[in-house]
Design a binder for these strands. Structure first.
Lengths: 144, 144
DNA sequence: TAAGATTGAGCATTCAATCTTG
DNA sequence: CAAGATTGAATGCTCAATCTTA
């Protein structure tokens, strides 16, 4: 009297719901420093690249479409966290450059994000956390 | 030489990334019958309730804000899957009613969703699937 | 005044079409 | 013509404000 091999009713839904909840928590915490998850992700890539990147590179590294980056950078620019600059090597290209305010927000945001990660996953012990990672890798390989 | 208890660097990101990938897969499959995950969720609640529900009830059951439902029902109405009707018991209220086309789409969509769920989670054996569920419950309790 | 629904504005994302530059 | 960026339209979500009805 056990589940049939292919029985996963509700599990996908449960996983997607959990992700939504966790994401909402992270967004709420980040909003205290004027950031969202997508904005923090963009600033992180900029920071890793040493302050600036062509928009097309940013799109590639965030695995999204270019038009998305155009608009995300619009919002970051409105926030004063990023500014656009010319790319001397290619006049078609535009550079997203982190401003001092952007770096400050990034540093605070990165701290908050890590703390949120610890808080949300603090229920799991070492074994559970490792198991979770292995399950994620397995599913990611299948779906990716 | 093991991770400190609070070390979860990247795990939240990995989980959110996985959820995004799984969601994208489900959306792609559902788009074949003109549905999205939110649309299928709404039709599911309508079906469970016996074809119709006041918009406020739909919002409550989908755990979202009322204005969201207004717009979701707008789109479902444009698709021909739902129509709005008066609520005889309260003139402030409006009923979302599933149309025949809506029921047909729901039935196909529910099939596709279940198949997608099985496909995406088919990598996991019985033990892993149960463990996943327990981890989700643990994290959901913490975050919910 | 409360509740139900809607509207308007903002964030985030995609796709298709377009403009500029290579 | 390709590539980089942008714009416009669509989906989906939130919040704040508003309108109607209870």
């Amino acid at each position: 009297m056990h589940d049939s091999p292919g029985d996963h009713i509700g599990r996908l839904q449960a996983l997607l719901h959990l992700a939504g909840t966790l994401q909402a928590h992270a967004e709420t915490r980040l909003s205290e420093v004027g950031l969202s998850l997508p904005k923090l992700a963009a600033l992180t890539k900029l920071s890793e690249a040493g302050e600036s990147l062509p928009l097309s590179q940013l799109a590639a590294r965030l695995s999204c479409v270019k038009s998305n980056i155009t608009q995300l950078v619009d919002r970051l620019e409105a926030d004063g966290f990023v500014s656009r600059a010319a790319d001397s090597s290619d006049r078609r290209s535009r550079l997203a450059v982190m401003t001092p305010a952007g770096r400050a927000a990034f540093e605070k945001g990165a701290q908050i994000y890590q703390q949120t990660e610890r808080d949300l996953l603090s229920e799991l012990d070492e074994v559970e956390a490792r198991y979770l990672t292995s399950l994620i890798e397995k599913l990611e390989k299948r779906a990716g």
